[in-house]
Amino acid sequence: NKASVVANQLIPINTALTLIMMKAEVVTPMGIPAEEIPKLVGMQVNRAVPLGTTLMPDKVKNYE
């Protein structure tokens, strides 16, 4: 099972992601793969992401 990116804290809307905000966890359904964490640093979320929520591609601005 592959790990996904999960919010390590509440991430407010329009916040630029940092390493400390994210952790890798095996979750269902799968979100953004954990190996993409370095790519996500500096990207902004387009909505608030509660603690423990899986980061889905549609929650990150300009994620492809």
Results as ranks from 00 to 15, higher is better:
Val49Met: 08
Met43Trp: 02
Glu36Val: 07
Asn14Thr: 05
Tyr63Phe: 07
Pro38Ala: 09
Thr53Asn: 09
Pro50Trp: 09
Asn14Met: 08
Ala24Met: 06
Thr15Phe: 05
Pro29Asn: 05
Lys59Trp: 15
Met56Ser: 14
Pro29Tyr: 07
Leu51Gln: 15
Ile11Asn: 04
Ile32Gly: 03
Met43Ser: 06
Arg47Ser: 15
Val6Gly: 01
Gly52Ala: 02
Lys2Phe: 12
Leu19Gln: 08
Lys23Val: 11
Arg47Tyr: 12
Thr53Ser: 13
Pro57Arg: 07
Val60Ile: 15
Ile20Cys: 13
Ala3Arg: 12
Gly31Arg: 00
Glu64Ile: 15
Val26Gly: 04
Ala48Leu: 12
Pro57Lys: 06
Val45Leu: 08
Gln9Ala: 09
Leu51Phe: 13
Val6Pro: 03
Met30Asn: 11
Asn46His: 09
Leu10Ile: 08
Asn62Gly: 15
Met56His: 10
Gly31Leu: 05
Glu64Asp: 12
Asn46Ala: 11
Val45Asn: 00
Glu35Ser: 14
Asp58Asn: 11
Met21Asn: 10
Ile32Gln: 01
Arg47Ala: 15
Met56Asn: 05
Val49His: 08
Glu25Lys: 14
Pro57Thr: 01
Asn14His: 14
Pro12Glu: 09
Leu10Trp: 12
Val6Trp: 04
Val60Leu: 12
Leu55Lys: 01
Thr54Met: 03
Ala16Gln: 12
Ala48Gln: 12
Asn14Ile: 06
Met30Pro: 14
Val6Ala: 02
Ala48Asn: 14
Lys59Cys: 15
Thr53Arg: 04
Gly42Phe: 09
Gly42Leu: 04
Asn62Ser: 07
Ile13Trp: 07
Asp58Cys: 12
Lys61Ser: 09
Val26Glu: 08
Asn46Pro: 02
Val5Asp: 00
Pro50Gly: 08
Glu35Cys: 15
Lys61Phe: 10
Met56Gly: 07
Met30Leu: 12
Pro50Arg: 07
Glu36Tyr: 11
Arg47Thr: 15
Pro33His: 06
Ala34Trp: 07
Leu55Gly: 03
Leu55Ala: 03
Val5Leu: 03
Met30Cys: 15
Pro29Leu: 06
Thr15Cys: 09
Lys59Phe: 15
Lys59Arg: 15
Val27Thr: 09
Gln9Tyr: 06
Asn1Phe: 14
Ala34Thr: 00
Pro29Thr: 05
Pro33Gly: 07
Thr54Gly: 04
Met43His: 09
Ala7Leu: 03
Asn14Leu: 09
Pro33Asn: 08
Leu17Thr: 02
Asp58Thr: 06
Leu55Glu: 03
Leu51Ile: 13
Asp58Glu: 10
Lys39His: 13
Lys2Gly: 13
Val41Asn: 01
Leu10Tyr: 15
Asn46Ser: 11
Val27His: 03
Tyr63Ile: 03
Lys61Arg: 12
Ile37Ala: 03
Lys2Ala: 12
Ile32Ala: 03
Thr53Met: 13
Pro33Arg: 08
Ala48Asp: 15
Met22Gln: 00
Asn14Ala: 07
Thr18Val: 07
Ala34Ile: 05
Thr54Gln: 02
Val60Pro: 00
Lys59Tyr: 15
Thr53Glu: 15
Val26Gln: 09
Val6Arg: 01
Leu17Gly: 02
Tyr63Leu: 03
Gln9Thr: 11
Arg47Asn: 11
Val41Ala: 02
Thr15Trp: 08
Asn1Met: 15
Leu40Asp: 04
Leu10Val: 08
Glu36Asp: 12
Gln44Val: 14
Val60Tyr: 00
Met43Arg: 08
Glu35Pro: 06
Met30Gly: 09
Glu35Lys: 11
Ser4Tyr: 01
Ala24His: 04
Lys39Tyr: 14
Glu36Pro: 01
Glu36Gln: 11
Val41Pro: 03
Val6Leu: 05
Thr54Trp: 00
Gly31Met: 02
Pro57Val: 03
Ile20Arg: 14
Met22Gly: 03
Glu25Gly: 10
Ala7Pro: 03
Met56Cys: 10
Val41Glu: 04
Met22Val: 04
Lys39Cys: 15
Ala34Arg: 02
Lys2Glu: 10
Asp58His: 11
Val60Met: 05
Ile13Asp: 07
Gly31Val: 00
Met56Trp: 04
Ala34Val: 05
Gly42Lys: 00
Lys23Ala: 09
Val45Trp: 00
Lys23Ile: 10
Pro50Tyr: 08
Gly42Ser: 00
Val5Arg: 00
Pro57Leu: 01
Gly42Pro: 02
Gln44Phe: 15
Gly52Cys: 08
Thr15Asp: 02
Met21Asp: 05
Lys23Phe: 08
Ala16Lys: 13
Asn1Thr: 14
Ala34Ser: 09
Pro57Gly: 06
Pro33Tyr: 07
Val27Arg: 15
Ala34Gly: 07
Glu25Thr: 08
Ala48Glu: 15
Thr28Pro: 01
Ala34Pro: 05
Ser4Leu: 02
Met30Trp: 10
Glu64Cys: 15
Met30Gln: 12
Glu25Cys: 14
Ala34Glu: 06
Pro38Phe: 10
Asn46Leu: 14
Ala24Thr: 07
Ile11Ala: 01
Met56Ala: 06
Asn46Tyr: 09
Gly42Tyr: 04
Asp58Lys: 02
Glu25Pro: 02
Val45Glu: 05
Pro12Leu: 09
Leu10Arg: 10
Val26Pro: 05
Gln9Ile: 12
Glu64His: 14
Glu36Lys: 12
Thr54His: 02
Leu19Cys: 12
Thr53Ile: 07
Thr54Pro: 07
Asn8Gln: 11
Ala7Asp: 04
Gln44Ala: 08
Leu55Arg: 01
Asn1Lys: 13
Asp58Gln: 07
Glu35Arg: 12
Val45Cys: 07
Glu64Ser: 14
Pro38Ser: 10
Leu10Thr: 13
Val41Ile: 12
Ala3Gly: 10
Met22Arg: 00
Pro38Leu: 10
Ala16Cys: 13
Ala48His: 11
Thr18His: 05
Leu17Asn: 01
Ala7Gln: 02
Met22Tyr: 05
Thr18Gln: 10
Val45Ile: 05
Ala24Phe: 06
Arg47Met: 15
Leu10Met: 14
Glu25Asn: 07
Thr54Lys: 01
Gly52Pro: 04
Met22Glu: 03
Met43Asn: 04
Pro38Trp: 10
Asn8Ile: 07
Leu10Glu: 13
Pro38Glu: 10
Ser4Gln: 03
Pro29His: 04
Met22Trp: 04
Asn14Cys: 14
Gly52Arg: 01
Ala24Tyr: 06
Asn14Lys: 06
Val41Lys: 00
Val49Cys: 10
Leu10Phe: 15
Ala34Gln: 06
Leu40Arg: 01
Ala48Arg: 11
Leu10Ser: 12
Pro29Ala: 03
Thr54Leu: 05
Lys59Ile: 15
Leu40Gly: 02
Leu51Met: 15
Arg47Val: 15
Lys23Pro: 03
Met21Cys: 06
Thr15Pro: 02
Asn8Arg: 14
Pro29Phe: 08
Ile20Tyr: 12
Pro38Asn: 10
Asp58Trp: 15
Ser4Arg: 00
Ile32Val: 05
Gln9Arg: 11
Gln44Met: 12
Lys59Gly: 15
Ile11Cys: 05
Thr54Asn: 02
Leu19Asn: 07
Leu19Trp: 11
Ile32His: 04
Met43Tyr: 11
Asn8Lys: 11
Leu17Ser: 00
Lys23Glu: 05
Val26Thr: 10
Tyr63Pro: 04
Thr54Ala: 07
Thr18Met: 07
Gly31Asn: 01
Thr15Glu: 07
Pro38Gln: 09
Pro12Ala: 08
Val6Ile: 12
Val41Thr: 04
Lys2Pro: 12
Ala48Ile: 11
Lys23Cys: 09
Ile11Pro: 01
Ala24Leu: 06
Leu10Lys: 07
Thr18Ile: 08
Val49Leu: 10
Thr53Phe: 08
Ala48Trp: 10
Ala16Tyr: 15
Met30Lys: 13
Val49Pro: 07
Asn14Phe: 11
Ile13His: 06
Pro29Arg: 00
Leu17Cys: 06
Leu19Phe: 11
Met56Val: 06
Leu17Ala: 00
Lys39Met: 13
Ile11Tyr: 04
Ala7Ser: 08
Leu19Ser: 08
Ala24Arg: 00
Pro57Cys: 06
Pro57Glu: 04
Thr53Leu: 04
Lys61Pro: 04
Leu10Cys: 14
Ala3Val: 05
Thr28Ile: 13
Ile11Met: 05
Lys59Met: 15
Arg47Cys: 15
Ile32Trp: 03
Pro38Met: 09
Gln9Cys: 15
Ile13Ser: 10
Pro33Phe: 06
Leu17Met: 11
Ile11Val: 02
Leu40Glu: 01
Ala48Tyr: 09
Asn14Glu: 08
Thr18Phe: 05
Lys2Leu: 12
Lys39Pro: 03
Val60Ser: 03
Asn62Val: 03
Gln9Val: 13
Ser4Asn: 05
Gly52Leu: 06
Leu40His: 01
Thr54Phe: 05
Ala24Ile: 07
Gly52Glu: 01
Leu51Arg: 15
Val26Ile: 13
Ala16Met: 12
Gly52Phe: 02
Gly52Met: 04
Val60Lys: 02
Gln44Pro: 00
Val45Arg: 00
Asn1Trp: 14
Val26Ser: 07
Ser4Ile: 04
Glu36Met: 14
Arg47Ile: 15
Ile11Leu: 01
Gly31Tyr: 04
Val45Pro: 06
Leu40Ser: 02
Pro29Val: 07
Glu35Phe: 13
Val41Asp: 00
Leu40Pro: 01
Ile20Asp: 14
Leu40Tyr: 02
Met22Lys: 00
Met22Asp: 03
Leu19Tyr: 11
Ile20Phe: 12
